[in-house]
Simulated scan of single mutants.
Amino acid sequence: MRSSTMILLGSVALVAAFAVSDRVGGPRGVLIEPAVAATPVAPPVSAFRTVTSSSCSANGCPTTCEADEALISAICIGSSGAKFSDNLLVENGQITASCGPSSTAIVVSCARK
């Protein structure tokens, strides 16, 4: 581009910037208002939690969720694949899932009640 075209485009951009700053109400040349201080927010609490145990060969990996949670799923993981746990025990309203001795780990999903 020629220098006269560049000067013209620069002038148009400068005039547009002044027009916008006048509409925003800020001082000339400033296009952004200062940020408002944010109030601290607590980190979000997850509705789901995963618990993993790997003592299956010794005791079957009995795993349960906290009292304020519900057990959603329990998956037994073995050397040949994974399957849902079919060993569920209910005591005092708490479900405990466990796996057989051929499993190497259990993965339990818990959800807040």
Score class of each variant (00 low, 15 high):
1 M>D: 12
1 M>L: 13
1 M>F: 06
1 M>E: 09
3 S>C: 08
4 S>W: 08
4 S>F: 07
5 T>H: 13
6 M>K: 12
7 I>P: 01
8 L>P: 01
9 L>R: 10
11 S>E: 04
12 V>S: 06
13 A>F: 11
13 A>T: 11
13 A>W: 02
14 L>E: 01
14 L>K: 00
14 L>P: 00
15 V>G: 06
15 V>N: 00
15 V>W: 08
17 A>H: 00
18 F>T: 05
19 A>D: 04
19 A>V: 15
19 A>R: 03
21 S>W: 04
21 S>R: 08
21 S>I: 03
22 D>S: 14
22 D>E: 14
22 D>N: 14
24 V>I: 15
24 V>K: 13
25 G>D: 07
26 G>M: 10
28 R>Q: 11
28 R>I: 11
28 R>M: 13
29 G>T: 05
29 G>W: 06
29 G>C: 10
30 V>E: 15
31 L>Q: 08
32 I>D: 10
32 I>K: 07
33 E>P: 11
33 E>A: 12
33 E>R: 15
34 P>W: 01
34 P>K: 03
35 A>Y: 08
35 A>H: 06
36 V>T: 13
36 V>I: 11
36 V>P: 00
39 T>M: 14
40 P>Q: 15
40 P>F: 12
41 V>R: 14
41 V>K: 15
41 V>I: 14
41 V>T: 15
42 A>T: 13
46 S>C: 01
47 A>P: 11
48 F>G: 04
48 F>V: 08
49 R>N: 11
50 T>R: 09
50 T>F: 06
52 T>I: 11
52 T>L: 03
53 S>W: 02
53 S>G: 12
53 S>M: 10
53 S>V: 08
54 S>N: 13
54 S>R: 06
56 C>A: 04
57 S>H: 09
58 A>D: 09
59 N>Y: 04
61 C>F: 02
62 P>M: 01
62 P>T: 03
62 P>G: 03
62 P>Y: 04
63 T>M: 05
65 C>I: 01
66 E>A: 15
67 A>D: 07
67 A>E: 05
67 A>H: 06
68 D>L: 06
69 E>W: 03
70 A>N: 15
71 L>N: 02
72 I>H: 03
75 I>N: 02
78 G>V: 05
79 S>W: 02
79 S>E: 09
79 S>G: 14
80 S>Q: 09
80 S>T: 14
80 S>G: 06
82 A>R: 10
82 A>E: 14
82 A>P: 04
83 K>T: 12
83 K>Y: 11
83 K>I: 06
84 F>L: 14
85 S>L: 02
86 D>M: 06
87 N>A: 05
87 N>F: 07
88 L>T: 01
89 L>M: 13
89 L>S: 14
90 V>L: 13
90 V>A: 07
91 E>H: 07
92 N>V: 02
94 Q>E: 11
96 T>H: 03
97 A>E: 04
98 S>H: 04
98 S>Y: 00
98 S>D: 05
99 C>D: 08
99 C>M: 07
100 G>P: 02
100 G>A: 08
101 P>W: 10
101 P>N: 07
102 S>G: 09
102 S>Q: 13
102 S>C: 01
106 I>K: 00
106 I>A: 00
107 V>W: 03
107 V>R: 12
107 V>Q: 14
108 V>T: 10
109 S>G: 00
109 S>I: 07
109 S>Q: 15
109 S>N: 12
109 S>L: 14
111 A>N: 03
111 A>V: 07
111 A>F: 02
111 A>R: 08
112 R>P: 01
112 R>E: 06
113 K>N: 13
